[in-house]
Structures are given as structure tokens and as C-alpha cells.
Design a binder for these strands. Structure first.
Length: 399
DNA sequence: AAAGCGGGGCA
DNA sequence: TGCCCAGCTTT
């Protein structure tokens, strides 16, 4: 059995009979084993959509509390659209893949302004919305509108690749085509909603990635990979990508009552989230180097008049800061993303209240309002442990 | 077609 | 540690 002979095999066997058998077995299994999840209690396309966006590349266990909070804060698409992107990002904080939140907000606005608050009922129209791809469009179309489209997500791919022993590397375009064909072949067009839920639940609970429960599997005898002893070789993954190493040096300033933050605007991780002024370097900086780099940083910013007169000379500003500012603490963190390894160093620096030479793009913020802004998990962890060091009163000065 | 995009749980 | 998760967008 090689490559995409799986589909031809499926067709050459007693085809329709077999397809129906498989999906019926999975549907039966589903009725016995399904979890009670809140988005299964509704057909409201808004709630279905919200749950699907949250669950993209995210485990149910991780997304569940976010779903409940979002539904509670924004019970309908109008309330979500009325919120600002900043507010949505704040509620999304910690969930990752923040483009989902930005796209979700954009789509909510569009649903209200273009579609009068009603989600489109057909697959093609759903597909045109930001953040909705083939999977999510099929999910909404089937769960909310009973349209016969099969969902093809990580769970379904795993289930199909094992039943039909597909040895194509998943996420190749060939494999994508094959998995779509197989998913269409199995689809129960009489009950696409239950079928899709069943396929995913079966993948999540029975046909698991790590230790699939083949002993008790109702498809044991129909499963090609199981018959061939290849379950643990399916699906065939692509080689994992290399993690890029980056060094982030953060300058955490405080005058006792305020701090200064920037919003990330580049096409990079954490777009539109807030963070302390950042120096990215090839190796982490020590404090003296960080200090001497500051004037460079300050002079590189725009030629703002009220600053250049005070900072006409770089070394002068270094001295200025050196005299006025005091390093309070240094904290290091390793932060792992799926595609990056970030070494982060936070310099906590206390400055006098009358320091007026900071770059204008550093937004001054009262310390007590710092939890109003959306920050990365990395910055959140720093704040959880060391926010108190930004306060003069609860602080000892090291230097 | 391939790269880029988070964070957490688990063996 | 490496793998993988109810994927999509951009290049």
C-alpha cells in the first residue's frame, strides 16, 4: 500500500458500503463518548464561529476558559464589534497566535457593517471572511446551517491517515487533496454536523496522536495502519523546523509611579501587543553595554526638537542617564515559541520624575494601569514576578 | 509551495 | 527535550 492508492482502494472495494460503515461506527462511538462542551449546546453561528477561531491550533482544555470569557464579555457579534481591537487583544492575552484575535475583531466589524449582524449561511461566503479558512468555513456551515461540508483538521487528518494508511507527508498539497477526497467520501450528508463533531472527537479521544487506544477501537479491523502495525507511523509528519534564536533586552523604566511601553507594530511576533522598550541584539547585553547603547537608541529616533537639544551628544545623554538613573535589578527568561527561542533580559531602571528626554514613541503609563494593555506571555510573566520592583517604595537599589 | 505565527501539555 | 494541538495568512 503506497502513496495515494488509499483512495482508489476505497473506491475499488465495496465502496459506498464501507464508507457508510466507517462513518456509522464513528458516529456510534461519538454518541457514547462525546464530551459535554459548551459550543455543542448551540447552533448560533456567532458562538460557533467564536469557538472555532479560539480552537484553531489550540487544545480544547486550553481554549475553553477563553471561550467562556469571550461569550460572557461579548454575548453577540454586535458587542464584539463595539469593543476595540485593544480590548479584544487583552481578553485574548496568553492564548497565542494573536492574528486570530485581530482577524476576529475585523470580521466582527464586517459582519455588523456589511451583513447586518448575520453570519453568511454558505461555505463560499464564509470563506471570504478574515480568519476563516476551509476548516472553519466547513465547521460553521455544518454546525450552524447543516450544510454538507466535511471538516479537515488535525484530528481528521490523523484518523484518515491511519484508517487508509496514507504515507504522504501531511500538509503537502498532494496529501491535502487526498485527505479532502477521503473526508468527502466518508461525509454523512444526512447529518454533517454530527459527523464532523464525531470525526474530530474520535481523533481527540480515541485515535490520539501519542498513545491511540487501538485495543478498544471500534475500527480496529477496518483500520489499514492498525492491520499493518503502522499506527505509530501515521500520519507522516514533515521535519520539524529549526527554532530561530533571538535576544531581547528590555528596558523597564520607572519613576515610581509611571513606566513606559511600546506597541509592537512590525510584521513580527506579538503584533499590536505592548511591551517595554526593546533592544534586540545578537547576544544579551550587560548593563554597561545597555547603558552605552541608550544614546544610540535615543538619537536614532526621530529628530524631535525638545529632545535633540537635550541629547545633542550621545555620550552626554549616557552620562545624563547614568547620573540620574539607577539599575535596580536584572532578570533573565527563556521563552520558547514553536518557531523561535527567545532569550530575554529585563533591566529594571529607576529614574527621577523630571526626566524629560525619553523618545516620544515610548508611551508613558501609570503603573496601576499596566494590566489594561495586552502583553505577551513573556512580559506577563515578568510583571507577575517583578512588577513590584518598578515601585520605589518596595525596592532596594543595587548599584 | 513554503514560511510565519504562541503557548501549553505531555511522554 | 520534541511533538502536536477544532489553521490561516502572507510571501
Amino acid at each position: 500500500m503506497s502513496n495515494n492508492q488509499a483512495f482508489s482502494l476505497l473506491c475499488s472495494m465495496n465502496t459506498e458500503q464501507n464508507e457508510k460503515r466507517i462513518s456509522l461506527i464513528i458516529a456510534d462511538w461519538y454518541e457514547q463518548h462525546k464530551r459535554d462542551l459548551p459550543w455543542r449546546q448551540t447552533r448560533d453561528p456567532y458562538k460557533i464561529w467564536l469557538s472555532e477561531i479560539i480552537l484553531q491550533q489550540t487544545r480544547v482544555d486550553q481554549g475553553l476558559s477563553y471561550y467562556l470569557r469571550f461569550i460572557s464579555s461579548y454575548p453577540d457579534v454586535f458587542s464584539l464589534a463595539r469593543a476595540g481591537e485593544d480590548e479584544v487583544l487583552k481578553l485574548w492575552q496568553g492564548l497565542g497566535y494573536y492574528s486570530r484575535a485581530r482577524n476576529m475583531y475585523k470580521t466582527a466589524s464586517e459582519i455588523v457593517s456589511v451583513h447586518k449582524g448575520v453570519f453568511p449561511g454558505d461555505y463560499k461566503s464564509l470563506l471570504r471572511l478574515k480568519g476563516i479558512g476551509p476548516y472553519t468555513a466547513a465547521a460553521i456551515a455544518s454546525f450552524s446551517y447543516d450544510q454538507a461540508y466535511p471538516v479537515v483538521d488535525g484530528n481528521v487528518i490523523r484518523v484518515l491517515s491511519r484508517i487508509f494508511n496514507v504515507d504522504l507527508a501531511i500538509y503537502s498539497s498532494q496529501a491535502e487533496t487526498l485527505f479532502n477526497e477521503l473526508a468527502w467520501a466518508l461525509l454523512d450528508k444526512e447529518n454533517p454536523a454530527r459527523h464532523n463533531q464525531a470525526m474530530m472527537e474520535f481523533g481527540a479521544l480515541q485515535c490520539k496522536p501519542g498513545q491511540p487506544d487501538c485495543i478498544n477501537c471500534p475500527l480496529r479491523e477496518l483500520c489499514l495502519a492498525s492491520s499493518l502495525g503502522l499506527v505509530d507511523k501515521r500520519p507522516v509528519r514533515k521535519p520539524s523546523l529549526i527554532r530561530k534564536k533571538r535576544c531581547f533586552n528590555y528596558l523597564c523604566l520607572s519613576d515610581g509611579r509611571h513606566t513606559w511601553l511600546q506597541q509592537r507594530k512590525n510584521k513580527d511576533i506579538w503584533q499590536n501587543l505592548w511591551e517595554f522598550p526593546l533592544f534586540e541584539t545578537t547576544a544579551l547585553l550587560e548593563w554597561p553595554a545597555m547603558m552605552t547603547t541608550l544614546p544610540e537608541l535615543l538619537s536614532n529616533r526621530s529628530e524631535h526638537s525638545d529632545r535633540t537639544e537635550l541629547l545633542s551628544d550621545g555620550s552626554e545623554s549616557a552620562d545624563y542617564l547614568n547620573n540620574k538613573a539607577s539599575l535596580s535589578s536584572v532578570h533573565n527568561f527563556n521563552h520558547i515559541l514553536s518557531h523561535q527561542h527567545i532569550q530575554a533580559r529585563f533591566f529594571t531602571v529607576l529614574i527621577p520624575e523630571d526626566l524629560k528626554t525619553l523618545p516620544p514613541e515610548w508611551t508613558k503609563l501609570e503603573l496601576r494601569n499596566i494590566d489594561k494593555l495586552a502583553v505577551s506571555r513573556l512580559t506577563e510573566i515578568y510583571l507577575e514576578n517583578h512588577l513590584n520592583e518598578l515601585d520605589f517604595n518596595s525596592n532596594r537599589i543595587i548599584r
